[in-house]
Design a protein around this nucleic acid. Structure first.
Lengths: 248, 248
DNA sequence: CGGTTCATTGATTCGCGTCAATGCAGGTGG
DNA sequence: CCACCTGCATTGACGCGAATCAATGAACCG
């Protein structure tokens, strides 16, 4: 299992230059991210400790049990967080998209692994340096607590999904949730992008690839969605999809 | 669905007197709870805003969607948090025991309902007054963030359980988790108490009552546990139980 | 162009859910 | 004290939804 490495030096210094050229002040996800807790010149204190890093698709960013030296903010692309059982069963605990923050659980070690779903750009913060900013900027900690609360609520929704929903309800809920998040980020919402594979979706929804695939077919046959290609869904009938998602 | 009401006035004022007679300084779960973030005289600031309340078994403490005016600390007894689907399917998202804090997700409305599993005593804080203490005692907010992180990690473990584990693995994991928590609270660990019903366990583990009952029988037959009565488990073979829980 | 990964579909299996019956403990009222 | 009820736990018989096993085809790629 290849660990995540910085890009080759030439490329890496390229992205570091990019970071200087496009500082936090011009960040396209700032007002959605935790950095929004900082105002005006305060943002420079964040800028001092951050590295903007490109990560190609399919890379391990960190693994469960690693020293949690860094936390991340997603700028573009998507990340999957997951836990593995010794026999290889995998549960994806979340997909992260631009403006999402990785590492709320500020423990000594990561409680899950993280891999890039596609090419992506992240902001990386040394954890202890970010924590050191809490003293000067309590709003940052408040913001993090707020984010943690949102994550907990999402986690509870996911427990309901995994514990009590049928395959069709799970997939419908998943699509609607992605739709919400896409619209919160200001992305287009007629069609939404699914950067992850069917296997990823299955491991997120507690299903197998085959069941995910069959359920896509079912939703398509019911006229709720269209899938022009495997990584794109069009929402044809939002109301019907809501009904299919089962409420709760 | 009867809402939680304070106890009848006579009784209620009795418990308020009790709160004054047994102030926070003598609280038996303080060093385990969020209140541990406050030292010496600071604890009085908490004591000013807290009410200690008795709640009989089976009461609704709050419901999903209610205004989240209060947060709680469990002193004794047990609480179940859950979400309902319109057709009545229920997912219990957590059981809370002494020293646990309810309401980390400090949103305007509760994201889940809460009912007492058995008779219990809680400390109740007006949410906005607790938040007001953050400014004077940033350690309190840090402590809450830490607690939220722990909850998030627990939530991810539960997702793995619900998404990928078999019935036997779920029940074994559940028993071991209760054992850990009991020992963290300093409770006895040869036998652990199960204040909730089989139905509650099923709704927590994503199973039916019948499957929970059959799985208890199976663990008993394998010599891993004994159940002198339905609300008590003895751990006969912790190693075997760990193996049965499937790692991860 | 063979090799790999991914998505889809079909046939079959199986773990858990559903339905049903029994027994026990606790509470209530006659 | 006993008859009755209710809630909970357990067990058995059966069915179903999703997993497993297997095959095919498309896209991509060194």
């Amino acid at each position: 299992m290849a660990r995540f490495d910085l890009l080759p030096q030439a490329h890496s210094s390229g992205t570091n230059q990019a970071a200087r050229l496009i500082p936090c002040a011009a960040c396209n996800v700032r007002e959605l991210s935790i950095c929004d807790a900082l105002r005006g010149p305060e943002i420079d204190r964040i800028a001092e400790i951050v590295s903007r890093i490109s990560i190609p698709a399919g890379r391990t960013v960190f693994q469960e049990g690693d020293e949690a030296d860094y936390v991340y903010n997603i700028i573009s692309g998507a990340l999957r967080l997951f836990k593995l059982m010794p026999d290889g069963r995998r549960q994806i605990t979340g997909f992260l998209f631009p403006s999402d923050f990785v590492g709320i659980a500020l423990k000594a070690r990561y409680a899950y692994s993280a891999e890039s779903v596609c090419d992506m750009i992240v902001c990386r913060f040394p954890r202890h340096k970010l924590e050191a900013l809490f003293a000067d900027f309590p709003a940052l900690e408040t913001r993090l607590l707020e984010t943690a609360g949102n994550e907990l609520i999402a986690a509870q929704d996911q427990m309901l999904l995994l514990g009590r929903k049928t395959a069709a309800e799970r997939l419908a809920s998943f699509i609607l949730r992605l739709l919400e998040r896409a619209s919160a980020r200001g992305a287009k919402t007629e069609a939404i992008e699914l950067p992850m594979t069917r296997t990823d979706m299955g491991d997120y929804l507690g299903l197998t690839v085959e069941t995910v695939s069959r359920t896509f077919t079912k939703l398509r046959q019911n006229g709720l969605i269209a899938t022009p290609n495997p990584h794109e869904v069009e929402i044809l009938d939002p109301g019907g999809l809501e009904r299919m998602a089962g409420g709760g």
